[in-house]
Each structure stands twice: as structure tokens, then as C-alpha cells.
Design a protein around this nucleic acid. Structure first.
Lengths: 162, 162
DNA sequence: TGAAACGTTAAGAACAAACTGAACGTAGTG
DNA sequence: CACTACGTTCAGTTTGTTCTTAACGTTTCA
């Protein structure tokens, strides 16, 4: 397998974006590569395509796996690990990010117990912080549910056509 | 002004969380401090409370300002800059994050033009990536609108009580 | 006019994160 | 059994980021 110039570009941009989201550039690249691969790739193949040490790929592929961006595929009679992009990885990336929102809620609640009664401005801000993230989490979960429902509807429509 | 132990804790945790979201710890601390302050704070006050150099506070306070987390307050007859937490800063933090989603959409579209027609698996993944983020952006905007509407309703209810 | 207070900027130091190369353990294979 | 292929881990290096110190320009006031 060989990457075209454009494909390499896609992979690199995925790396940069993923880096901005707090991940490592290489794990973003791995995910990007798996997105456009036409079959599951072994560690060595990823290493060759991305020009990164095997040690780093080993680590980052596992990170992708743990984040639900990729999954390991094993082939009987083949000792190698293959990786492929997980379906629905983007939904998962969003719901994972909700954990931070949970912590902000916890923090706002804790803050409210610590802040002086007389400090109304702060209490208002913390209350809003708590309420907003509670709202956002609920709404985001509903959003993902709606998305999944729509996907299912499309899938069954496709099947009926077959 | 003096911070209690619990307040200092709150500030530090805001720093850590903000760091996880890709910012610097100190800008998160500044934001946290402004959240719980009972009045706008000058650069020197922030410097003293956070035990960080004035240069760093100058930079990070401006970062908070540009991200919409804080705003400058000026007082007539006072040469100092005061900062206070912006109302609705959390909504803004979310909508800012949607810019990344826009780039992912752009990237998916570009990828679709670059990927071989025969690579159906990749085309499916990229299509889903594009559609999902389009969906997510639209839904998130609606979510924020609903939140604002609810806030407005609460505010006017409060006013009627007065 | 000189000094003090204020915010900003630039250079360098300190720190943290990510990658590499090498060594290791394990499992197949000739 | 020796040898190779494979994935993992760890120490060391590299790289990038963030903070500090110091210098600067501006404004205010004695």
C-alpha cells in the first residue's frame, strides 16, 4: 500500500486537529490513516506508511483503541495485530469529552459550598456554570441518540432496497 | 483580598481542567479566580493571588479576554486594568469548539474527493464523518439557542418578582 | 523633571510531552 | 534448537510550551 499526496495530507491534518483537541499528533495520524485504509492495517504497515517508530505506533494505536477510535482485528493463523477504524468513532469522541463537563459540574457544586453567602456575583456565576453543563450533557446525549436513530433508519432503508 | 483554602483549590482545579481542554493552566486559573471574585480584579491583584509573574498574568488575562472568558473593566480616574468573568462564558467556550468541527467537515469533504472510488469502506467512513459533524454543529447551535431562551425566561421572571 | 505605577514585550530558563532506539519476552518456523 | 517476526516497555533525547526576569514605553503625580 502506498499513500497518494492527498491522502498523506489528509492524515497529517487529522494529526494536527487531533493535537488541538488535546491528543497526540501521531494518534490522530493513526486514526486518519485507518479512516482511509481499504483494509485493516498491521502495526508494521502503519509504521511504514507514517514513517514513525514502531514503539510510538504501538503506543498510539493502543490509545486509539482505548478511545474507541480504532479496534484490533485478529486473523486466525496470523500472529500480527491488525487495526481498523471503529464505526461510530466520532460519536464516541464526543461523549468522551462529556466527562470534562461532568467534572466542571462537580467543581461548580463544590465551589458553591465554599463561596461566601454574600458573594452573590460568584454564586450566580457558579450556579450558571453548573446548570449550563447539566443542560449541555443532557442535550448532547439526546443529540447522539437522535443521530443513532437516524443512522438506523437509513440503514434499514438501505437493506429494504437490497 | 485573600483566598480560603477551598477557593484556592477551586482555582487550581479550573487550571487543570482548562489544561486538559488544550489551554494553559494559568489562563484556566485566571478564569477560575475571576469566577469566584466578588469584584473585578486588577493585574496586580491577580498576580498576588495566583503567585504568578505579572508578565504571565498579562498574557493569560488577555488570552481569557480574547476567548470571551473574561472582559476588561475600566474605571474613570484609575489607570489600572480590571478584569471580570464574562457572563455566558461557557456557552462561548462551546461554540468556539465548534470551529474544530467545521474543519473536520472540510477535511472529510476534501478526503472524499481524494479517495479512490473503489475504496467503499473509506468513503462510507468519511461520509459519516461529514454528516455527523454537520448534524452536531446544527444541533449544538440549537442547544445553545434553547439555553439562552430559557435564561431569558428566568431573568424576566425574576424581574417580574421585583 | 524625576520617580513611581502600570502594562507589554522579548529572551532565556525550566519544564513537560512525545518520539526513538534498544532490549526484552513470546510465539511461531525451518 | 537456533532464528526470525512481532509487540511491548523503558531510558534517553528531542522538541515544543510556558513561565520568569528584565527592559521598555507610557502615564501620572510630586
Amino acid at each position: 500500500m502506498q499513500l497518494t499526496h492527498e491522502e498523506r495530507d489528509f492524515v497529517e491534518q487529522m494529526g494536527l486537529i487531533w493535537e488541538r483537541l488535546g491528543g497526540t499528533r501521531t494518534s490522530g495520524r493513526v486514526h486518519g490513516l485507518l479512516m482511509i485504509a481499504d483494509k485493516p492495517l498491521s502495526l508494521n504497515e502503519i509504521t511504514a506508511l507514517l514513517q514513525v517508530s514502531k514503539a510510538s505506533i504501538s503506543t498510539n494505536a493502543r490509545v486509539c483503541e482505548q478511545l474507541g477510535l480504532a479496534q484490533r482485528v485478529s486473523v486466525p493463523g496470523d500472529r500480527r495485530d491488525y487495526y481498523e477504524a471503529s464505526p461510530g468513532s466520532f460519536e464516541r469522541a464526543i461523549t468522551i469529552r462529556l466527562q470534562v463537563a461532568q467534572e466542571l459540574i462537580r467543581l461548580a457544586r463544590h465551589g458553591l459550598t465554599a463561596i461566601d453567602e454574600a458573594n452573590l456575583a460568584a454564586r450566580t456565576r457558579l450556579t450558571e456554570m453548573r446548570d449550563f453543563y447539566e443542560f449541555a450533557i443532557a442535550e448532547t446525549n439526546e443529540m447522539v441518540a437522535r443521530w443513532r436513530a437516524e443512522q438506523d433508519r437509513n440503514k434499514s432503508r438501505k437493506q429494504r432496497r437490497m
